Amino acid sequence: MRAPAPAYAANDGIIDSAGAVLGAALLSSLDAVGEVALHVDRVSLVETMVALRDTPGLEYQQLMEIAGVDYPDREDRFEVVYCLLSLTRNHRIRVHVQTDEEKPVPSVTGIWPVAGWLEREVYDMYGVLFEGNPDLRRILTDYGFRGHPQRKDFPLSGFVELRYSEEAKRVVYEPVKLAQDFRTFDFTSPWEGAEYILPGDEKAALPEAKGAPTPLKADEIVKADAAKSEATAPPPKPKTTESPAQTGAGKAEPDATPKPAAPDLVKAPRKPRAKPAASGDAPSKPRTRKKPDTNNG
């Protein structure tokens, strides 16, 4: 195995080929951080997807994902992103369309049936309508859920809360009651970078370590190893000990004797060991104690 992950084909010529095929349906294109994004007209989405799938040199046969993005400051606040994969060329692109709460997006279930569930998810989370979807219902939230959770103006606490009622012996919905509501919203994406600077952000110009979070954009991120600290200048003169005065030890006395390791501890002299008996001498017999005579008187 030459690489831990498969190497995808290069992006060279993809935008030119797509522009020649799509024509006026291609509104804009972008090649950034190794990914190609095509912004197309919403009305001609189905024809665009068929062209990207069937045109030789493009051949994006598989729909991998449909995602939604919310930009509340835009006129068309919602952006639907289609992630396509070319199996024959091993290449990926993104197709973007813009819409609002009322204008429906043409469904691509006739091209890829898997889009049915993916479009239901975007509808459930953002409220985007898909024209032509045979079963456009909520898929992640409950039947009585109000609102769309992934919208930027959706309250963090929600509108209702669910709990089990001992009185009713069933699950009930009740309005959320909080002492303090979340009233401020920040619509700026952290990946695009905020215009203001929070305390401590000045230290995050580069990642602190490998894997550390950074406020920089994807095309501005530099590896942590690239940020090397300035090398410290060497000391003017290396430290040496050439004399006893530099080491801190005084001169030895003429009649100096080895001092014990602990001045307060003096070892007792060892007792001489008994000499073993010579080989010619008979070993001495041990003396036995004479027992008293108990037979007399």
Rank of each mutant, 00 (worst) to 15 (best):
A249D: 10
P104N: 11
F154R: 05
D293P: 15
T214H: 05
K251A: 12
T257G: 07
E65P: 01
G250T: 07
P258R: 12
R2V: 09
D201T: 02
D201V: 00
G19V: 05
A9I: 00
A245W: 13
L84W: 02
R183N: 08
P292H: 09
A51H: 01
R138F: 07
S229P: 10
R53P: 00
F78S: 06
V222W: 11
V266K: 13
V105G: 00
G248E: 01
G34L: 02
P254D: 05
T99V: 04
P149E: 08
T257F: 09
P155V: 04
S279A: 14
H91C: 10
P56L: 02
P276W: 02
D41T: 12
L26V: 04
E242T: 12
D76W: 11
V95S: 02
R163G: 12
T99P: 03
P238A: 10
R89V: 01
T55A: 00
L58E: 00
P283F: 06
V114S: 10
E35G: 03
P258W: 06
S86I: 00
Y8R: 13
S157E: 10
V176L: 05
K251C: 07
N296F: 12
P286S: 14
G13W: 02
R92W: 04
T214Y: 01
E230N: 15
D142V: 07
V122E: 02
V122Y: 05
I15F: 00
A209S: 03
A256I: 01
E242S: 10
T55G: 07
G200M: 00
A245Q: 11
A249S: 08
A25Y: 04
E167A: 13
G127M: 06
E220P: 08
G193C: 00
V176A: 06
T294K: 15
K228Y: 09
D73C: 13
R273I: 08
D219G: 06
V36L: 01
V222T: 10
A268V: 13
D31I: 09
G297Q: 09
R138H: 10
R42N: 03
V160C: 10
S107G: 00
G34D: 03
P238S: 13
P269K: 09
A25W: 06
T55M: 02
R77L: 12
L136V: 06
A5L: 14
M64T: 14
E220F: 05
T241P: 02
D54Y: 04
E242N: 13
V40A: 04
K259E: 11
N11K: 00
T188Y: 11
